[in-house]
Design a binder for these strands. Structure first.
Length: 289
DNA sequence: ATGCCAACGGAACGTTGA
């Protein structure tokens, strides 16, 4: 079985490329981020014609996540318990609007096997800059996500869960093309705070004093072949110079991690006219759909 | 070679992303 995650940067602009990715990798499930449309605007027909089902979430032209599956698509849920919203603030930190829970998480049960897999397509907020409210929003989003998944796994440790998407975190210094540039000039994706909340997914919870519960998850894509990065900015020849970032990952619960076989980064998808700035990351499992 | 930012809404250009 093959599941891929991809920040497609508009499904309407790249539906043909998505169909090509499904075919090229013989995918059972494709988790999309930055679909940039409402569900009623999602071009579902060509995917349905190819034998897939589609579930999409989107409030407007920003964000947007979706799940495309040919092995079943049930129990769709948009968002997660405790998912924080974002509220505009004035310069003093006073809220100028009610928080909006953005379209950054969608979950579904896929697979007709014995237990199925709960797959999540996740688009973690970009923190923008260290002193921007979006940075605190990003950290809180990750903390709350870890808690929500921990609670589910504590209740059912055998559950097969995959959390995949665009995490907007570079966990290792080698996950960016120039760590000094990112530390000193970009100031985002590589901070200790971001790495701590990202790495918390790989640690068990204690379930005490407000800490989350449940077992550690396993990140599946670290040893992927195909490329060192999953994103190359459109500007300044970043792709031809291989000045990229690795920020797309997949965390698996213990029972799913046991089935993991291999991961691939589809670097070729970054080539040519009309490419997304991210490429698909494919995860293979030793399991029948 | 892989090539100098792109998509959105809305109809010019501001917002957003990373």
């Amino acid at each position: 079985m093959r599941i891929a995650t991809w920040n497609i940067n508009s499904i309407r602009a790249r539906a043909e490329r998505a169909l090509g990715v499904l075919d090229r990798w013989d995918l059972d499930v494709l988790l999309l981020q930055e679909t940039k449309c409402k569900p009623e605007q999602f071009p579902a027909e060509p995917f349905e014609a190819a034998g897939y089902q589609v579930a999409a979430a989107g409030l407007n032209q920003w964000n947007g996540v979706a799940i495309i599956s040919r092995i079943g698509l049930d129990n769709v849920e948009i968002g997660f318990p405790g998912q924080p919203g974002f509220a505009k603030e004035d310069g003093a930190g006073a809220l100028l609007s009610e928080p909006v829970v953005e379209a950054r998480a969608i979950r579904a049960r896929v697979g007709t096997g014995s237990r199925g897999i709960d797959v999540w397509s996740l688009y973690i907020p970009n923190g923008r800059s260290y002193n921007d409210p979006h940075f605190r929003y990003k950290l809180e989003f990750l903390r709350r996500l870890r808690a929500a998944v921990g609670e589910q796994l504590a209740a059912d440790p055998a559950r097969r869960i995959l959390l995949a998407g665009d995490w907007n975190v570079a966990p290792e210094d080698t996950d960016v093309w120039d760590i000094d540039f990112f530390r000193n000039d970009v100031g985002m994706y590589v901070t200790d705070e971001e790495r701590a909340v990202f790495n918390a997914f790989g640690k068990p919870g204690t379930g005490t004093e407000g800490d989350f519960a449940g077992p550690a998850l396993t990140e599946l894509t670290r040893g992927a072949d195909g490329a060192d990065y999953t994103f190359w900015d459109y500007q300044r020849l970043r792709f031809p110079k291989n000045h990229g970032m690795r920020i797309d990952f997949g965390w698996a619960s213990p029972e799913l991690a046991d089935l993991f076989a291999a991961a691939h980064i589809d670097r070729d998808e970054r080539k040519g006219k009309g490419a997304s700035d991210h490429v698909p990351v494919i995860m293979e499992f030793d399991a029948e759909a």
